[in-house]
Amino acid sequence: MRKFNPAPLFFALLSIIAFYYSDMSLLFVTNEVIIRIIRDSLLVFALIIPVTAGMGLNFSIIIGAMAAQAGWIFMLDLQVPGIRGIAGAALSGIFISFICGYIIGSYLNRVKGREMIATIIIGILGAGIYQFIFLVGYGTFIPAHNSELLLSRGAGIRDMVDLAPYRNIIDRLWLVDISGIQLPLFMFSIVAAAALAVKLILLTPAGQRFRAAGSDRVAAELSGINTDRTRIQAMIISTVLACLGQIIFLQNIGMVNVYTAHMNSDIFSCAALLAGGATIKEAKIRHALLGIVLFHSLYIVTPQAGQNIFSNAVLGEYFRSFIAYGSIAIALIINIRHEREKQGRLQ
């Protein structure tokens, strides 16, 4: 029996109420949501395969995000211009995230059943190493080629670096304006291609292996599937997708907040996925897309709604982070309980 998941309805309702009080124009919100779809989709897609493979929400997608930031910084440091720079950032990001994905996957094979808490802490460890490289390493033991990137003390990358050389190269491609709604068709096609790619992967024998490992790891192992390898593959795909997602995200924003841009990318992506009706056992592309629309509509309108209702915009901001954390907490608690009840029945 498929149970009705009230999450999308709940988010829709909240968004509508907040939208009503925010006094924002529908056109503005729509354009904002479109931007968010482009910025966040790939990060949310990155969560789908690990969920399918039974590893839960992959909070370590922030490692992929940091790989993307590293990619951008490398290109800025080497001053590679234009589309070559974008490609270079993507390729070096993919390379780093592939290796990280492999390492994370191998580690997660040693902590089966507790992957989610592990990925959270892997995220913290990754952030530490990342800061060590860029805040301490650059200019000291890593030679910097572009001194404009460095802090005035001569060691460490600045807090914020401009992506000016790469701005608007791809995200204004094929831009269509329909009565005020801006549709960047090229970026949409990238999102669509990523969605299709995830979908197609799930339709191959590899997808079948992910699903089998996610449904019952022991049974999958007994039927001849190397579940350890399957899970590593899932993490590699996830991390690489997250990296690509962050490349797009930063390119769209036009600058890199070197030490904060990755923060919360995991929490907001997970919350968006759950808002779309996914669980920690089952996630699909449509959950991701619906979730991004719902979660970000709410995200966009809450500060203004808070301002208008309580004359305090900060309340809206706190409210939306509570919604993000709260929806993950509730999804976890409900899901773990279901799992336990199911196990009880099977025995």
Binding site: R211, A212, S215, D216, V218, A219, A220, L222, S223
Partner: peptide
């Protein structure tokens, strides 16, 4: 091997 407790994937 045909397992006593089955090696079937439950959701398949």
């Amino acid at each position: 091997m045909v397992y006593q407790e089955f090696a079937l994937i439950p959701s398949f």
